[in-house]
Write a protein that binds this DNA or RNA. Structure first.
Lengths: 154, 154
DNA sequence: TATTGTTATACTCTATAACTATA
DNA sequence: TATAGTTATAGAGTATAACAATA
């Protein structure tokens, strides 16, 4: 029990809430919590599932191309892919026309896993739980898409 | 020079751009790049500067309170604060009424450093460089504030 | 020579638990 | 017993550079 009567000291973040970097960081931490609640049971981390997803959408893409698009460093990508291969989710193919490269595709279990967890990954209900309406969520996604140049859908 | 005529393979992210977690992650990476360009020269990382900022706004706050608010783990906070003390930016005080706790404040050099880099940290021009107008930036910040529950200003 | 991916090293951040000193 | 902070350890992510195989 508490002795001093200090009612849980409050913190004034001041102009910090006007920092895009800080606010994005805090938002990411919050949303990632939801992700972990859902996929941690499968021993799957956000970055790993994202890679599986992109391979599912783009079978046969080179490992380096995916790493560049997702801003994963090559050294890290190597280890990540090795884990996914060990898990039986990803198959590596060295094409004949360029035997330096590695092309990636999902195995049947990998494809099944992505399909099964597709909904969880998209955070369909994250926004509700996280104080935003559907409209606000759409707006937020649109702004993030414009910021990153990734929201090609308009 | 390239041999095969593949015009830089393109990646289809598909529904991934509808994932709040993924989009927040990519946006954060992009905005953090700007931060590093500006403060890396000072050997200062985002988390460290954020802590200095919060101490500046709330001198005398307990170390653990700040850690909880910024979602920094206690173990990490200990090391971070030690670096800031070593840099001469932060002073630690153990109050008489509860000698388990540690209260933090900025030294004069610490306060001067925060003041000097205040503008850079707030990413004043980050939004422009990053494809958003002022209005869109304000809107994005407001939505992130609502999502995280931190945007108390309304 | 340049490129693709791998290996190796080191450092930061995170997660966890055990520990101390106070309360 | 509970709390504040520390220490120790391990793992993931990142940065960097050196390397092998191929182009």
């Amino acid at each position: 029990m508490k002795d001093t009567a200090e009612p849980e000291e409050s913190v004034d973040l001041g102009a910090l809430t006007g920092s895009l970097g800080f606010m994005l960081r805090m938002a990411q931490l919050q949303v990632f919590d939801l992700f972990f609640q859902r996929l941690a049971a499968h021993d799957m981390k956000p970055g790993e599932f994202t890679v599986l997803w992109v391979i599912a959408e783009n079978p046969g893409l080179r490992q380096g191309t995916i790493a560049r698009e997702l801003r994963i460093k090559p050294a890290h990508m190597t280890k990540l892919i090795r884990r996914m291969v060990a898990a039986g989710f990803v198959a590596r193919t060295v094409p004949e026309n360029d035997r330096r490269s590695v092309r990636l595709s999902l195995t049947a279990p990998g494809a099944a896993f992505v399909e099964k967890n597709r909904g969880a990954f998209l955070d369909l209900h994250a926004a509700e739980r996280a104080r935003l309406s559907d409209g606000e969520t759409a707006q937020l996604l649109a702004l993030l898409g414009k910021l990153t140049g990734l929201g090609s859908k308009t």
